[in-house]
């Protein structure tokens, strides 16, 4: 790269060359579909969500309550020991105000999203979720929040059974 190299290869294409059909392309959309076995920990977690409850797993060696729950402790590398219900309140660890959707398309109403460290679980045990009922200039790190659940009959055993988190207003 050098000083000795005079020419670098690569031919740039513009968006226009493509939209004008000047470029030879082949198209293919893969048909890709999965059904992951949730396993022991996540199956129980999702079923508890349906009941409006949050559950974690405790490791008796490091005494941490892990949330979301898992059947093994990654620090001690041993099976976890017991199920422990935790609260649906917590503290905002961090957040973002997003103006793009999952496909990087612009959206008008921004999404408030962040990580909530849950009460009743060990330090930093958070999950990602949305926020609402709070203005984007009022949201703050360390703010206390509470889950807003879907109605029981609407719940399907998914993380989206919680609609979003709202400020506790303490």
């Amino acid at each position: 790269m050098t000083e000795n190299i005079k020419k670098f290869y690569g031919e740039e294409l513009s968006r226009k060359q493509i939209s004008d059909g000047k470029i030879t392309i082949v198209e293919h959309s893969p048909k890709v579909k999965y059904a992951w076995s949730c396993g022991e920990a996540m199956s129980r977690f999702l079923n508890e969500l349906k009941e409006g409850k949050l559950i974690g797993r405790k490791c008796n060696k490091c005494n941490r309550i892990l949330f979301p729950p898992r059947m093994f402790c990654e620090q001690c590398f041993k099976a976890t020991n017991e199920w422990v219900y935790i609260k649906d309140t917590g503290r905002i660890m961090t957040y973002s105000i997003s103006y793009v959707d999952t496909h990087a398309r612009r959206i008008k109403k921004p999404i408030l999203v962040g990580v909530i460290a849950m009460d009743g679980a060990s330090k930093n045990m958070g999950i990602m979720h949305y926020f609402d009922e709070v203005k984007s200039d009022k949201i703050k790190i360390d703010m206390r929040v509470k889950a807003v659940w879907k109605r029981k009959e609407e719940r399907e055993g998914a993380i989206t059974d919680i609609k979003y988190f709202k400020p506790l207003g303490e």
Binding site: S37, G39, E40, A41, M71, Q75, F77
Partner: peptide, 27 residues
């Protein structure tokens, strides 16, 4: 099929057995 375990749990099982077999602590 192995519907009762997740991909993580199947790895955990086999890894645990290997560590036991070797007599080591992965941590």
């Amino acid at each position: 099929v192995t519907p009762d375990v997740s991909w993580k749990e199947i790895m955990f099982q086999a890894a645990n057995r290997a560590y036991h077999d070797a007599g080591i602590d992965p941590r």
